[in-house]
Design a protein around this nucleic acid. Structure first.
Length: 585
RNA sequence: CGGAGCGUAGCUCAGCCGGGUAGAGCGCCAGCUUUGGGAGCUGGGUGUCGCAGGUUCGAAUCCUGUCGCUCCGACCA
């Protein structure tokens, strides 16, 4: 391709709308343009990168035995009602209406449709296992689209769904996908690491996310530096808080004391009360599927809402309003407690495991302006359910190794789930086993955000001057840069010759035939980030040389006669270097 | 959904406080010069000042509403 024949609208200045580097570079390098918040048009270079990623994904899905299908974006709401997600995933569903005012939903994912297919087609154990995948547009009514393609209303996703005869067989399918994902991201030149993940609204029992470490990521990952443990903070556990929970009773019964105006853990920890945060019981009021519930944590701990949902099986949880707290417990937030004697009526109580055996604690008295001390949990509180509900903090010890845990931010680019039979039961995707018994298929589902992966590559691999595309995902591998584009000039004649020869060998070459000053061409090539730039200037040509300039590498002069082979050799070496990072299939 | 900020030329932004003919740089078009890291000079078109009302002799500027964009939050009692 010639630069003047394609469309690469680079920007010298950073668009005001873009906050993070990858979003700025997407726009500046001319890969995308915004249509509206969370909606983008992909320009020729952007489309080329998307196709590169898609191709790698297809090759690895096919290699893993998955079968490509294509499902509609427009889906009947009845299927979503059948799975229950019409309600539980209501926030992300877009609804549209046809001329007869019939409702449809725009697919945010396709468990329902694929399970519907399986229900009709997979009747025998002889047909299993099967794994179907597609690459297509997904729609999600995001609360707040942001960071360009990172969180968009509409995005390109690879989604796959496996059906197996048993949990053990489903585990095999899961592991195949897990390995395929590791290969896909490595082939894309992206450094990722898998972490244990919460299953959330999708449901299921086992789940890993593939994360790209990045300060701009929206996820927090808890990990042990030994490399043996990494988990999304929504899922992560540890050996518990660093400060031990007091276990010594300090009095025969709870004692009320006056705390006017004290409504925070910090205020009670300060003078004159001086009750350390880890000697306090934090009492949160939540509505779990509309049922008021007290959630008890140590004063210095933070509730993990994902855990709350996972441990209780509730579909929805929200904190009670101050008015609801008052109605339930007779006091406002800041003075709440679960001590049996202060409750006007029974309320369900959940307590975090860090409070096991807690004694000599302080908590709210359910009376504004008063707290209780000498509270022994076992003696004074009726706990209906104990569970791990707290958010792990950096520095706590890893359960397995005992090493201190660290926390870092990351971008989620892929997610694999072991689903079990949640969808197959609801949508009746059953098969007959060897004995003629009807059984629900055991499912897994597997997603990769293609457009997010594209941006994550940029976020991970850029410098001050622009993008550094890995060879495998670059829009063009080589940018030929003649510094004189007059048709009969020596630089242009040689450029044309190399262009023809390289193209004939299957190399993706962009010929910068613009009549621009060298500085402009160099800046643009760096901005877009072609892996290899080949400079063809009259000065070097006079010495019988051209120059290879790998993006992010050093300028190397090469004799004209050896130019073509040197370029091909550089591409081979670079390709091999990337290939070495890819785990075996 | 709550909070904050911003909407002026294709892009980055000034002008708004204190109302009085719409501005700069970059880009774009033409010409000359220049040619190894976003050149210089000359000339040129650049616009519903987001939209709708209101106040005023007069509104980009003041007021009201509305739409859009960006960021933060939407558990921490």
């Amino acid at each position: 391709m010639r630069w003047t024949q394609t469309f690469i609208p680079t920007l010298k200045e950073t668009p005001a709308e873009a906050e993070i580097a990858s979003h700025q570079l997407l726009l500046r390098a001319g890969l995308v343009r915004k249509v509206s918040g969370g909606l983008y048009t992909f320009l020729p270079l952007g489309v080329r990168v998307l196709r590169k990623i898609e191709r790698i994904v297809r090759e690895e899905m096919d290699r893993a035995g998955a079968l490509e299908v294509s499902m509609p974006c427009l889906q009947p709401p009845e299927l979503w009602q059948q799975s229950g997600r019409y309600t539980t995933a209501a926030e992300v569903l877009y609804h549209v209406f046809d001329r007869a005012k019939k409702e449809w939903v725009l697919s945010p994912t396709a468990e329902e449709v694929i399970t519907h297919l399986a229900a009709g087609e997979l009747g025998s154990y002889r047909q299993l296992p099967k794994n179907f995948y597609q690459i297509g547009i997904k729609f999600r009514d995001e609360i707040r689209p942001r960071f360009g393609l990172m969180r968009a209303r509409e995005f390109l996703m690879k989604d796959a769904y496996s059906f197996d005869v048993s949990d053990a067989a489903a585990q095999v399918s899961y592991e195949k996908m897990y390995r395929a994902y590791a290969r896909i991201f490595a082939r894309c030149g992206l450094r990722t690491f898998p972490v244990e993940a919460d299953t959330g609204v999708i449901g299921g029992s086992l789940s890993h996310e593939f994360m790209v470490p990045a300060e701009t990521g929206e996820n927090e990952v808890v990990y042990c530096e030994t490399g043996t443990y990494a988990a999304n903070i929504e899922k992560a556990t540890s050996r518990g808080p660093r400060l031990p929970t007091p276990q010594q009773s300090t009095g025969p019964a709870p004692e009320k004391f006056s705390t006017p105006g004290v409504v925070t853990i910090e205020a009670l920890a300060a003078a004159p009360y001086s009750v350390p945060a880890h000697h306090q019981i934090k009492t949160l009021v939540y509505l779990l599927d509309s049922q008021p519930t007290l959630v008890l944590l140590r004063g210095d701990d933070q509730l993990n809402e994902a855990k709350l949902l996972a441990r209780t099986g509730a579909a929805r949880a929200r904190p009670a309003t101050p008015e609801e707290c008052k109605a339930t417990l007779g006091a406002h937030p800041g003075s709440l407690g679960a001590v049996r004697a202060t409750l006007r009526r029974p309320v369900r109580v959940l307590a975090d495991l860090a409070l096991r055996g807690a004694a000599g604690m302080a908590t709210g008295a359910n009376e504004d302006g008063f707290h209780l001390r000498h509270v022994d949990l076992a003696r004074d509180v009726v706990v209906d359910q104990w569970a791990d509900l707290r958010t792990v903090q950096a520095g706590e010890l890893d359960v397995a190794t005992g090493q201190p845990l660290k926390i870092r931010r990351a971008i989620e680019v892929g997610h694999v789930f072991k689903l079990g039979t949640k969808y197959s039961e609801k949508l009746n995707a059953c098969f007959l086993d060897e004995t003629g018994q009807r059984q629900p298929a055991v499912m897994g589902c597997y997603g990769i955000g293609i457009t997010r992966t594209l941006q994550a590559i940029i976020e991970q691999q850029h410098d001050r001057d622009g993008i550094l595309w890995p060879l495998t995902t670059a829009p063009y591998a080589v940018c030929l840069t003649p510094l004189n584009v007059a048709p009969d000039s020596a630089p242009m004649r040689l450029a044309e010759q190399l262009y023809a020869e390289l193209t004939a060998r299957g190399v993706e070459v962009l010929l910068d035939d613009r009549d621009e000053r060298p500085g402009v061409k160099f800046k643009d090539a760096d901005l877009v980030g072609f892996p290899l730039r080949v400079n063809l200037g009259e000065k070097a040509l006079a010495r019988g040389e051209i120059e290879l300039k790998p993006r992010g590498g050093t300028l190397t002069p090469v004799k004209i006669e050896a130019a073509r082979e040197a370029i091909l050799e550089w591409l081979r070496a670079e390709s091999a270097r990337l290939e070495a990072t890819v785990p075996p299939a």
